[in-house]
Design a protein around this nucleic acid. Sequence first.
DNA 1: CAGACTTGAGTGACATGTCACCTGTTTACT
DNA 2: AGTAAACAGGTGACATGTCACTCAAGTCTG
Lengths: 169, 169
Amino acid sequence: MSAAESPAAAPQTPWLTDDQQRIWRSWLSASSRVPARLGHQLQQDSGLSLQDYEVLVTLNEAPGGSCRITELATMLEWERSRMSHHLNRMDKRGLIRRYACPDDGRAQLVELTDNGHVALEKAAPGHVNAVRSVLFDALSDRDAAELGRITALIAAHLDNQSCTLSGKG
Amino acid sequence: MSAAESPAAAPQTPWLTDDQQRIWRSWLSASSRVPARLGHQLQQDSGLSLQDYEVLVTLNEAPGGSCRITELATMLEWERSRMSHHLNRMDKRGLIRRYACPDDGRAQLVELTDNGHVALEKAAPGHVNAVRSVLFDALSDRDAAELGRITALIAAHLDNQSCTLSGKG
DNA sequence: CAGACTTGAGTGACATGTCACCTGTTTACT
DNA sequence: AGTAAACAGGTGACATGTCACTCAAGTCTG
């Protein structure tokens, strides 16, 4: 539901083909609805947002149970200021804790609090079920594998072109 | 980067397999980065957000150039209050206009202003190029078709299970 | 070492999205 | 008609995300 892919064709602009439009809209629909559904489930069942959950998981999996804020932001593909704001909120709720990095006076390390661990462990089973229910139950193993392969291609392509994008492709 | 798909397996909870985790994370990464990239391009080049653009396109394609607010929200898969807030903002910027529906005293119709049409026509070529550059340039025709087929399956699956989701899948 | 530059983190203002709730209209049922 | 339910839309409070900016600590270079 996003791209004006053909409002009275302009001179040099090749619009998307009908097929491409269909693909693009399916993608948009699925990629906005899946996280919406999962977010609702998580919020209902655990009082966590999908974002909270991502932070909890990433910290939980970090070697030593902690990592730098910038590192966390990189892993989550978030902007640093978003990370900072979100950690403030999670800090207030007692889910995470920050402390100075001994090796680098500029850096802060983040780790889960006990509350954070508990929240994650309570939320995880329901969330995993929801992921399966929303995504994997819809697909054969072969289709799921295809989806993984194709989304990996897209991600790799984004890495390559980095930020070289504006107007003309 | 989202799901804690195996923190010390709990009794009855089947976690995701390693393959499923990889698929899931590729999907998450691609589906969050694609709109981020497109949003930046659009904002830089046209001063429109991706959301503005979606509204403009949908209205532009609507038969008669106008439609009801709820109808618009349904097409965009947005909540109605989100629609309402966003239309307020776009109204203030002179992109859209609302007026009473003659057939139904409850309803409002929305349409593009001249400014809105101009903004869309200026933004469209760059956005289309960006979509192609970000998504279709990464994929063979066959892969793109596969992506369309699979995302359509996911969307259809979401339609079916509607909101029957909470905890156990 | 001084000064310029880079890096890690945070902040305030503002844009956007969600939730619970309100108002006015239409529809359905009796 | 009379009333309950459903519906269209809107609002305020609050959660979240972005942008431009600041500050402090490390790094590099003459």
